[in-house]
Amino acid sequence: MVNTSTPLKAESKDLNFFYANGHQALKSVNMPLYENKITALIGPSGCGKSTFLRCFNRMHDLYPGNKYEGGIVMHPDNTNVLAAGVDPIEVRMRISMVFQKPNPFPKTIFENVAYGLHVRDEKNKRVIADKVEEALKGAALWDEVKDRLNDLAFNLSGGQQQRLCIARALATDPEIMLFDEPTSALDPIATANIEELMSELKNKLTILVVTHNMQQAARVSDYTAYMYLGELMEYGDTDTIFTRPTRRETEDYITGKFG
């Protein structure tokens, strides 16, 4: 079931996660993340898939009282990104994220994409301009915005804003990109654009995507993980999960009998 010829980019090992109120949202999750592949996390609301995703860039550290146990080990350096000695900022420098609702800064299109470079102390204007162009091209947005880079990002449509957020996440050359239901606020055409983009992006980086949309998982992902009540119920390559799931619960969820 698990492909051994593809290199691992990261893997979660016995990951437990507790919210500040004591609720255990993840229970001993073990899952590989293969390099240059798209892994989809599916499961009903509240199953812990977003919680799991947000462990990868330590977003939970922003709110006091949250607690991790176990680890998420990145390769090739074998760093456990959840280890107490690892700075969450360093983790976020390597792993970028695209959110559910487009969340551009109230700044210009250019400033939005360049922000990650600004944070990394890049001062060379030429380098910044090149990187911004490259990222916008990578996010398939360049042609639409190249003449109005100094417009405010809020003037873009919802789909364009989401691609802008992808460009922002891309500009800093991340190793892994996390997508938290990236198309749930978008119309079908914008959704198709984003999905196409993800398929291209995986040539450069590794993608982990949370989705509520079963068809989306089937269309874009190479591997799929089904989560339920904080546990990883089933993991495998997407074709297998969607055609011959080994567990009854997975099949029920995928076929819409439950969820």
Binding site: N57, S96, F99, Y115, V119, A169
Partner: peptide
């Protein structure tokens, strides 16, 4: 979160 997510 957007700002933190790029490593700020």
């Amino acid at each position: 979160e957007a700002a933190y997510a790029v490593g700020a």
